[in-house]
């Protein structure tokens, strides 16, 4: 069963104020981008259900394609954040 238990250093990490500010700003911008995409989906579902019915790619309608896009883009945008964050 070795390796199942974890040992932490218990120390607080030291952080640079500039790095924190950069990462916070980056996070807020990416967050706003996702809010726009999510908001667009909600708005279409609530106010333009006719658009949601239209086939878009490979015979799949806008509702399904947009839904999958929201899930996949969450991962994509999270990876972008991870790669561009300063340490």
């Amino acid at each position: 069963m070795a390796g199942l238990d974890f040992k932490g250093s218990g120390e607080r990490e030291k952080e640079d104020a500039g790095v924190v500010a950069h990462n916070t700003k980056l996070g807020v911008w990416l967050f706003l981008v996702y809010v726009l995409v999510y908001g667009g989906f909600i708005a279409l579902a609530a106010f333009r259900p006719d658009v949601m019915k239209q086939p878009l790619i490979l015979g799949i309608n806008v509702a399904v394609v947009y839904g999958f896009t929201l899930i996949v883009s969450a991962l994509a945008i999270a990876l972008v954040y991870m790669k561009t964050c300063r340490k």
Binding site: G27, V28, F31, Y38, A45, G67, I71, A74, Y81
Partner: peptide, 22 residues
């Protein structure tokens, strides 16, 4: 039902970008 899937996942964006690190 899939609307719940979308909403539950989107919530993680708030967690990652706004809440996690602070």
């Amino acid at each position: 039902g899939f609307l719940y899937s979308i909403g539950y996942l989107a919530g993680w964006i708030v967690a990652l970008f706004i809440i996690a690190e602070p």
